[in-house]
Write a protein that binds this DNA or RNA. Structure first.
Lengths: 217, 217
DNA sequence: GTCTATAGTCTGATAGAC
DNA sequence: GTCTATCAGACTATAGAC
């Protein structure tokens, strides 16, 4: 067994915060170069966005040379695409698990809204919408669009389900409520980061839930 | 009267979209250099954020040389601060006018939510929260924080007023509803930019209003 | 006040050795 | 596969002429 051992993710990569600037990635020992490049890019895209992330910074964090990056990927956009797709997929899985979990439709929407989050870091998918180079490139924007669209659809179906079961008032529109729910989360990150505290995020979630709760029968 | 004529804003600078890339600013003829630098920076911060905006791009859009910028401002952060402060002030004035306008508390909140917006451009204040260099610098973050905080306070007071007048249910919490309202707007921009269409923004606003409306008596 | 010239660093990419 | 060397251009700032 040498350096060509199958890639195994030792740590759930984006689940631990990286508050300190380190030269060698904590997981550099247990991933191949391609994986390290993708994970480093995912972290940097989350922290600094696409425009604020340079190949040099990616390579330093991944502890790799220029050649490795241009061997595995066509360039910065190509590597970013791989990173964005993986982040989108991860978010879909995490949100899907909560939304498809146990409980009534209201309870599952509440579980999604109250789901544990690293609020001050923002949403790794949503933040990309503020990146001009991501929005300008349909290929980079697609995973972002699809993920948020999928999320709204899931919640809209849940609202419709709740209406049919009589948990929600018949007057509610599934797609509109879903958009309000997802927007409250995405906007909650904005308020939290502006104030430097998660309090505003939590307040927004409680506010929306208080409005939604009184529509239950 | 020469080039030292008092600065007069010919066009409400940020109210017309700049879809095309131009070398000379439309308003370059009727502003002094300092003003042009600030207005160019405001545009670029809105379009590309702080990290994505270079002094070179600012100077080209303002039709000014390096020397002018470093004469009037200490550097990029100093110029950005002036631009951010002005944008924050403008947003406060615009939102304040609607929130202090005619109508019941609900109607004024509705007017704020339905207020005409260039949705796909996003919020010139809120988008800065996704900029790592803005969040890392308390001086740059302050105007953003203060503006969004002020906005939430205004809406919270409006909700309290509506409760006292019997328009809203007593169970509603002003600060929570205010956070949900502002978050819905900020998150609406995210959804709209992801999908490339203002539809999701409008859906979220309608969803929130439909929840809030049935709390009226 | 405004300009150009210059500087040192970073960006994003290519070439070619090992 | 991975590395270093190299490159043209951009980034941010300073110096000094006008």
């Amino acid at each position: 067994m040498g350096s060509t051992a199958p890639a195994r993710v030792c740590f759930p990569p984006l689940l631990f915060a990286r508050s300190t600037s380190v030269t060698t990635s904590m997981y550099s020992a247990c991933m191949n170069t391609s994986e390290r490049l993708i994970e480093s890019t995912r972290e940097l895209l989350w922290e600094r966005g696409y425009v604020g992330t340079s190949p040099k910074a990616i390579l330093e964090r991944a502890d790799a040379g220029q050649g490795s990056m241009y061997h595995h990927f066509k360039g910065k956009p190509d590597l970013a695409l791989a990173a964005i797709r993986r982040t989108a997929e991860e978010m879909r899985a995490a949100a899907g698990a909560v939304l498809a979990g146990p409980g009534t439709p209201y309870e599952r929407i509440e579980a999604y809204l109250r789901r544990e989050r690293d609020v001050l870091r923002g949403c790794p998918v949503g933040r990309l919408t503020m990146d001009p180079d991501v929005i300008a490139d349909d290929t980079l924007r697609a995973p972002v669009d699809e993920t948020l669209d999928w999320l709204r659809e899931q919640i809209a179906q849940l609202v419709e389900e709740g209406r049919e079961q009589g948990e929600f008032a018949p007057s509610l529109d599934g797609e509109e409520i879903a958009a309000a729910v997802v927007a409250t989360v995405q906007g909650g990150y904005v308020l939290a980061r502006a104030s430097g505290s998660p309090a505003a995020f939590d307040a927004g979630v409680r506010g929306l839930l208080s409005l939604l709760a009184t529509h239950k029968n």
